[in-house]
Design a protein around this nucleic acid. Structure first.
Lengths: 164, 164
DNA sequence: TAGTAAGTTCAGTCAATACTGAACTTTTCT
DNA sequence: AGAAAAGTTCAGTATTGACTGAACTTACTA
């Protein structure tokens, strides 16, 4: 049956989004929820729909949706006729995910500075190890947000013209 | 005593490098080794020195140094007079760490493409969710390496003039 | 307004995996 | 060459944190 084949692919996709975002520190189930919300139709799902589709407990759905909302990756929406809440991917979620990397870079820069203080009495060529790291963090802390800004601007510009 | 104070700071620095790199998927102990190799004097350390300083078993030092070498973050060096091997931070280690992020971006792009195939029959506004993610990954896959390249070039240029 | 469905919270379980320690191999020193 | 020191491998332990399930709260419906 055609439909089962399709669902098999979707299951795989959802699982792989879970794995990918696990690399970025999200719990597996949070990534699965995002994966499902990326491809579902309609694009909004209730907690119980999520629980059933993902074969997960209501408990973990509740915990993980709260986390995703705090992180700004999904949002609650009200659906006319139904009173209970639905979730959907928040527009801009993906730049948000990338922005978390930026704050990690900032942490790295601060840490490198603490390190530099510790080696300040060593000969300059020994300080080089840490200077390299520090230098890169400083560079990225400045340039990374600019890069994302450039993307957002380009994207906005293209929003006007309907593609294809 | 002045020296104990210093060692306290160093311990903390090492531990925090461990925590930072854990975010990027390295085992804690691997990050600690890098942390120590960033600030130690001399800049090269033998496995047994590492084990003693970090209060770790010889076993985990052996496993983790092998991992770090495979990842291109540290290297073996021969020290005159001593036959056994020493380790030190490999120059360029930090751009290497960043490069691992790039390959994660590539994974994300591929995954987004699989997702797009799954929603190709949905109305265009529903495809938007995935297009945003895909678009960003494509952008970063192109621009991120260019950014690192720019940094490396700038750094090379500055290598000539001794600073301060 | 009572009854049911949906959602939240949290204590306890389970699974993944980093790390230890012991047996073994390789290197170094006398 | 023999003894000791250093390094590797791997089976087993310990720790961490995600997930479940049950008790509870809130929202909906007849």
């Amino acid at each position: 049956m055609e439909k089962e084949q399709r669902w098999f692919q979707e299951k795989h996709f959802i699982e792989d989004v879970g794995l990918l975002l696990e690399q970025s520190g999200l719990p597996r189930m949070a990534g699965r929820i995002l994966g499902l919300l990326l491809i579902c139709n309609p694009p909004h799902q209730s907690p119980s729909e999520l629980a059933e589709t993902l074969h997960a407990s209501k408990g973990s759905i509740s915990t993980m949706t709260r986390l995703l909302i705090e992180m700004g990756l999904i949002e609650r929406i009200a659906v006319p006729e139904r009173r209970r809440d639905y979730f959907r991917i928040k527009p801009g979620a993906w730049s948000q995910i990338i922005m978390f990397e930026v704050s990690e870079v900032a942490t790295g820069r601060q840490l490198a500075e603490r390190g530099l203080a510790l080696v300040e009495n060593q000969p300059p060529e020994l300080q080089e190890r840490l200077k390299e790291a520090h230098d890169l963090y400083v560079f990225l802390e400045r340039e990374y947000p600019l890069l994302i800004g450039r993307w957002e601007k380009e994207r906005e510009k293209n929003a006007g013209k309907k593609k294809k």
